[in-house]
């Protein structure tokens, strides 16, 4: 029988799922993704994490728990680094061990390192380690890796078309080639807002209180770091006096700087998690940079398990009032 590998719908899921999924499937493995975040998942995550952990980590814990008992393995690579001389976050480095400690009956974890820190390390080698669990033919693993990379490229292209991650994944799943017109870069004639934040915050509808959906419903176009090509984001981040060693921080700063110089953008929303370590610094740099360079409506939202929906809505509305008022 085919082994089933569970993939938590959390953390870097929104950036890498197509790669992981295609890779595993090409090796003849079935995959199972945890459902979209709901109250139960969140509650389980909170219950099994230390209070001090940030919401995304607690939530990821909940998604792992959700998969327990349903799968043979859980795909939880230790994501050390996805770009040369950069890391994600100390918590990513320790997450598989945190899971093992908090969830005693967890299925077997696939926790091989993904580590591209050293400029000469190869993603292929990392994935090979994982592939070997399911397949003894290195050629086949190689092919699986190539196909997986292809699907990541197509996925990123869809994101750059301003299609949201979940929709992009659906499109890829049913190999739908013809895009409906709602997939054009801008949906409406309304103002365009740059939404800056880690993908696992802004694209998780439950956690973000569907901020993207709300904005769209109000006739606002939303662009993010993911809707930009990577080179542009990285280019933006070069204004820093010292290269930032967090990939997600690079994305936030780079995209914020880019959008700030784009006159078509009429407001910036910065989303981060309560107590997020890297964001405490990158957010500060972004805010200071904005204040120094341009007067633009700016909203900073901090999310945690206690964030009330009403408060967020009020602040969003006030922010949009500013945007419209400025636009005249």
């Amino acid at each position: 029988m085919k082994p089933t590998v569970g993939i938590p719908r959390a953390l870097l899921y929104y950036e890498f799922f197509p790669l992981w999924n295609t890779f595993l499937k090409s090796l003849g493995v079935s995959t199972c993704v945890s459902p979209c975040t709901n109250k139960r998942i969140l509650a389980n995550g909170l219950k099994n994490s230390v209070d001090e952990a940030c919401l995304p980590i607690k939530l990821a814990m909940g998604h792992v728990i959700e998969l327990c008992g349903k799968v043979d393995y859980i795909f939880l690579p230790r994501i050390v680094s996805v770009a040369p001389r950069e890391y994600i976050c100390p918590k990513f480095l320790g997450f598989p061990d945190m899971v093992r400690n908090a969830v005693p009956n967890v299925p077997k974890l696939i926790d091989a390192n993904i580590d591209l820190y050293h400029p000469r390390s190869k993603a292929q080698k990392n994935l090979h380690e994982i592939g070997k669990l399911f397949c003894s033919n290195p050629m086949r693993i190689n092919r699986a890796h190539k196909t997986a990379c292809q699907s990541l490229i197509s996925y990123k292209k869809l994101l750059q078309e301003n299609i949201l991650p979940e929709a992009a994944m659906e499109i890829m799943a049913c190999k739908e080639i013809v895009f409906k017109n709602k997939h054009s870069k801008y949906d409406s004639n309304g103002p365009t807002i740059a939404l800056i934040g880690h993908s696992y915050n802004i694209y998780d509808q439950h956690i973000s209180m569907d901020i993207i959906g709300r904005l769209k419903k109000l006739g606002v176009n939303v662009v993010t770091a993911e809707t930009l090509p990577e080179e542009i984001v990285r280019q933006g981040a070069t204004i820093l006096p010292k290269k930032l060693f967090w990939t997600l921080g690079q994305q936030s700063i780079g995209s914020a700087i880019h959008y700030l110089s784009d006159p078509a953008i009429s407001g910036i929303i910065l989303v981060s998690s309560f107590g997020c370590g890297p964001d405490a610094l990158t957010g500060e740099l972004i805010e200071r940079y904005i204040h120094r360079t341009r007067t633009i409506p700016f909203l900073k939202l901090t999310l945690d398990e206690h964030t009330g929906e009403a408060g967020v809505i009020t602040r969003l509305e006030a922010f949009l009032d500013m945007v419209y008022w400025k636009a005249g």
């Binding site: 001090e52 061990d97 093992r100 107590g275």
Partner: peptide, 16 residues
């Protein structure tokens, strides 16, 4: 210190 990332990882593991 509050929000210290590496130590939050350690804190999660020390009970074990």
């Amino acid at each position: 210190p509050f929000t210290c990332m590496p130590e939050i990882v350690a804190q999660s593991i020390l009970p074990g």
